[in-house]
Amino acid sequence: MTKLAQWLCGLALLGSAWAALALAPPGLQPPAPLRQALLPLPVYLLVAFGCYSLATVGYRLATFNDCEEAAAEL
């Protein structure tokens, strides 16, 4: 399976689970407070991933070694 297919599978799985809960018919709906948290969950996850990405790249950028000695050695 290609990496693209793996991603699509994962997203489809999560997406359908979310859709089943969020778009369930009124009788089968989860309790209201849970539902309120559930509806914007994909957006929260996206934002959290974005923050994680920025933080990781930022941290690694800040800690990227400058090899002064290596340059001097050569």
Binding site: V57, R60, L61, F64, N65, D66, C67, E68, A70, A71
Partner: peptide
């Protein structure tokens, strides 16, 4: 201890990104 020498911030950012 790996690293680079001679890269400015922009170059590093692109590399890390």
């Amino acid at each position: 201890n790996g690293g680079v020498y001679g890269w400015d911030l922009k170059r590093k950012l692109i590399s890390r990104g």
